[in-house]
């Protein structure tokens, strides 16, 4: 049975969330901690653009008629038009923002973008991208709400869930890059900085994952006890039915439980001398698991909503 919205859409939603979340993290970090955590903003912007572009690519693959792209802006009442506007806005703006943060290892790029030293214009972009990024991250959730025939998605909880998941994946994607880079840092000072940054991301993500897990369970509880029989069926599919292995193992275990344990450990004991050398590798593991689990989460919720209606 071919689902109308299948793995390609799940991937599109995932990348959209990742992109939006990355920009949110980059912008928030800039506003609150200034230039100190420049690496976070840098990777936030790169991952943001890449993920948003992948999101657009996945949507084009799903649609099959890229030459009709310009038509996509035609309907102000459609949420998909909204999403298309957001994605096409983020890409150029995010690109310009990225030019404010060229990588230090390529000095010729710095000379290509002479404005990268100015902070105030960059902050403007960050504000814009915070709004657009939130829009994109929330969009991946509430776009599913257009399917009025699938009451499983008709709840603000899906926006909350996908939004938090987006922020979480943004945090962990940046964390992954930092962890990899930490391993090649030369000076003691820069190593410490990287660990500090990863620590912030780690703590923030801890909260996010806890929230995400909680909301997911609340979501399914609400659907099980709601008025719609179809929504109940979808919830049952996830909890005990054919999608249960994907949900419990693929999402919950891999995406929530194990990463939280690792993150708790890292936050508690990770920066002590004994375990410091394991910090980066553990971070790599945790962030990879979160990134994988988040995809399963979106896939599960996407598929669960459609299956009862097809039977």
């Amino acid at each position: 049975m071919e689902l109308p919205w299948g793995p390609v859409i799940a991937a599109a939603l995932y990348f959209g969330g990742l992109g939006g979340g990355s920009f949110i993290v980059a912008s928030t970090t800039s506003f609150i901690s200034g230039e100190e955590f420049r690496e976070i903003m840098k990777f936030g912007s790169y991952i943001g653009i890449l993920a948003t572009a992948l999101c657009g690519l996945c949507l084009s693959i799903h649609a099959g008629h890229p030459e009709r792209l310009l038509f996509m802006y035609s309907n102000p009442t459609s949420m998909i038009t909204f999403g298309t506007c957001v994605i096409t806005a983020i890409l150029p703006i995010g690109l310009i923002y990225a030019t404010f943060l060229p990588p230090d290892s390529l000095p010729w790029l710095k000379s290509l973008f002479p404005w990268s030293v100015y902070v105030k214009p960059r902050k403007l972009f960050e504000l814009i991208l915070f709004i657009l990024g939130s829009g994109l991250a929330g969009y991946t959730g509430f776009v599913l709400g257009i399917a009025w025939a699938e009451p499983f998605w008709e709840t603000p909880l899906i926006t909350a869930l996908f939004f938090i998941s987006a922020v979480s994946t943004g945090l962990m994607a940046i964390g992954l890059c930092l962890a990899i880079l930490r391993l090649v840092q030369v000076t003691e000072e820069s190593q410490k900085l990287f660990v500090e940054m990863m620590h912030r991301l780690d703590v923030a993500d801890g909260y996010m994952l806890a929230l995400e897990g909680g909301i997911a369970l609340l979501y399914l509880y609400v659907m099980l006890n709601g008025t719609s029989g179809i929504a109940k069926q979808s919830a049952q599919l996830l909890l005990t039915g054919t999608l249960a292995p994907l949900f419990w193992v693929g999402f919950f275990l891999i995406g929530i439980i194990i990463p939280i344990i690792i993150e708790l450990f890292l936050a508690w004991k990770g920066r002590t001398a004994k375990y410091l050398k394991f910090y980066a590798p553990l971070m790599i593991v945790a962030s990879s698991l979160v990134l994988v689990g988040a995809f399963y989460m979106r896939y599960c919720f996407l598929v669960a909503g459609q299956i009862p209606l097809l039977s």
Binding site: H62, G64, H65, F71, I80, A147, Q306
Partner: peptide, 8 residues
């Protein structure tokens, strides 16, 4: 464009 929004 085949977005399948109407289908859903």
């Amino acid at each position: 464009v085949g977005c399948l929004a109407c289908v859903e």
